[in-house]
Design a binder for these strands. Structure first.
Ligand code: FES
Ligand code: FES
Lengths: 151, 151
DNA sequence: TCAATCAGTACCGTTCTGGTCCACAATTGG
DNA sequence: CCAATTGTGGACCAGAACGGTACTGATTGA
């Protein structure tokens, strides 16, 4: 279905949330803010810290803080941090693909496709996603009706 | 890892292979040509036929044939046929996403990202993938012009 | 009629993901 | 110095998705 892992979705949500916080925020705090189970959020934050997208402060009164402003973090970076490298097929970046690469008519030809996606994802920052989260009325009517009905 | 299903990869390989055939080709034949187990290839072809990307000829001397030339089939179509619709997050196209959409700061904001990828994938045809698989000297002018984005 | 070939479905084993838990290290504050 | 707080790292398990296979039926052509 070409969908990215749900953890990546959580990561984006947590990061955007973190972008609004002024001080460090604890993982239970973030979990409560976005309405997700705490252990899962903690795991995501952990991976994010490992990739340098957030900085962590240990000890009492510790927590997490963005290392860069939202508009400097691309969606591709978040995906890379949680989901791993973007590799549509098994044979991108020179890795071994099909069983019989010699017979494969498209051997190594996924790279342009991969790059196209990677580029598209790099061009979108978290700030772009946050912008629309604030009340903005030029959204699609379907979304507005769905939001009201869903709640 | 944001990778598409392996079956989709097979589909592209089979379609490109089919693009070179002059007459109908049977699924065992294609399987042998690309070095993949026959039942799996048959399953892929089946799905492709269901989506109208290939036309099937039943009975003796039957087989599969492309319904459109390679340069008229986009990668996105193949993915749609095998992997299903491109939906990075659970909340694209107005579908319900997170448990608590009311708290989600990026509710419904995956759509632009999704569209960006969909567009990037629509802009690449199977002909773009084929031209690089054969020796450079065999490229046709039409393929070269269509492949400007890829190389 | 008979053989070739696609169509549809159903099934199983493997792998990956999502989610939870626990023991440990680091920092703060009394 | 001790205790409370908070992140770190890893292991662990259940569930779903995926890949692969097998079988039976329908359709065509010789
Ligand atoms: S080698 Fe990459 S698809 Fe065949
Ligand atoms: S509702 Fe789509 S990510 Fe939260």
């Amino acid at each position: 279905m070409l969908r990215l892992s749900r953890l990546t979705d959580y990561a984006v949500v947590a990061l955007v949330r973190l972008g609004r916080a002024e001080a460090v925020e604890t993982s239970p705090g973030i979990a409560a803010a976005i309405g997700l189970p705490e252990p899962t959020v903690a795991k995501v934050l952990k991976a994010l810290a490992c990739s340098g997208l957030v900085v962590s402060q240990r000890g009492a009164h510790g927590g997490y803080r963005l290392s860069r402003p939202l508009h400097a973090i691309s969606v591709a970076e978040v995906i890379l941090a949680i989901d791993g490298p973007i590799a549509l097929a098994s044979c991108v970046d020179g890795a071994a693909g099909c069983e019989s690469q010699s017979l494969c008519p498209v051997a190594g030809r996924w790279d342009p496709v991969n790059d196209a996606i990677r580029e598209a994802l790099t061009g979108i920052t978290l700030a772009d996603m946050e912008e629309a989260a604030v009340p903005r009325a030029f959204r699609l009517p379907a979304e507005l009706s769905a939001a009201t009905a869903g709640e």
